[in-house]
Design a protein around this nucleic acid. Structure first.
Lengths: 142, 142
DNA sequence: GTAAGTGCAAAAGCTTTGCGGTGAA
DNA sequence: TTCACCGCAAAGCTTTTGCACTTAC
């Protein structure tokens, strides 16, 4: 991967932002330094950064709305491959213990644990290899 | 809120699905029972359910991609009002303790805690009330 | 010269909105 | 009659893709 000027500025824009910016945010900020930059270039390079592991996305679920009807507090096990979500009851995880102060004035509503990894199918074990396409229904983008 | 036939079928579709369905998933399933249903109706009713608290969304961040450059393991404090995200160092939270088995074959990569609530600005304290619009940059949808 | 990167514009998802019609109180 | 809701279609965002042009090896 070539470290072009645009890439450098885009990467620095993410670093400088304390606010977990969106591509649009980055675009706005980068335009201050490179007025000719295009939003498409920001997206392309963000994708490159994600692919190479230089950046991460805050949530695995930003593609499409995912719903739940289980209104009792619970946690999630998420497969980063197929985006499948398995529920864990609240009692399956010991209460989270906070050891520092939160931002001033922040009022906690709830606390949710996300265990991220690869499900059996995405690791290629269990369910025979023929069944590549349909082992889970929803979620993954290109 | 009237409990129309469409609403009933849509709600049941979410209940039946163990997979945290997307609106599109719901649409496909509901069409089996109501062939004339429209995707727009599914979206409208899902929104109604979300507004009334009958359903929840899995993630607060599904609207637009949010990035992070902080590659060290850490946790998040998220404001459900303005979607602002504050980082917590990994050491600020005691290690999560799992008390049950995960789905068979699931390989854990990492574990992230999300503390959800309202930030000072969204609670209307601190920063004077005049400053309603711009206290945080990114994220919220209509 | 080749390969990769950029900018632009079009296209492709996902979601919301507006509107006419329908059905229930 | 009124009001909420439905279905349909258009519009609005976000993101990806294709292509011609440039730039760096």
């Amino acid at each position: 991967m070539a470290f072009t000027f645009q890439r450098q500025v885009i990467y620095e824009a993410v670093l400088d932002s304390r606010q977990h910016p969106t591509p649009e945010n980055i675009y706005e900020q980068v335009r201050g330094r490179i007025p000719s930059i295009s939003l498409g270039t920001v997206y392309k390079n963000v994708k490159t950064f994600l692919d190479t592991g230089l950046l991460k996305e805050v949530s695995l679920h930003h593609g499409s709305l995912r719903l739940e009807a289980n209104m009792t507090p619970h946690h999630h096990v998420v497969c980063s491959g197929c985006k499948a979500i398995f529920d864990l009851e609240e009692s399956d995880v010991a209460p989270v213990e906070l050891k520092s102060r939160l931002p001033k004035g922040f009022a906690i509503a709830r606390c949710s644990v996300e265990i991220i990894g690869l499900c059996a199918s995405c690791r290629g074990i269990g369910a025979s290899n023929k069944k590549i396409s349909t082992h889970h229904s929803s979620g993954a983008r290109k």
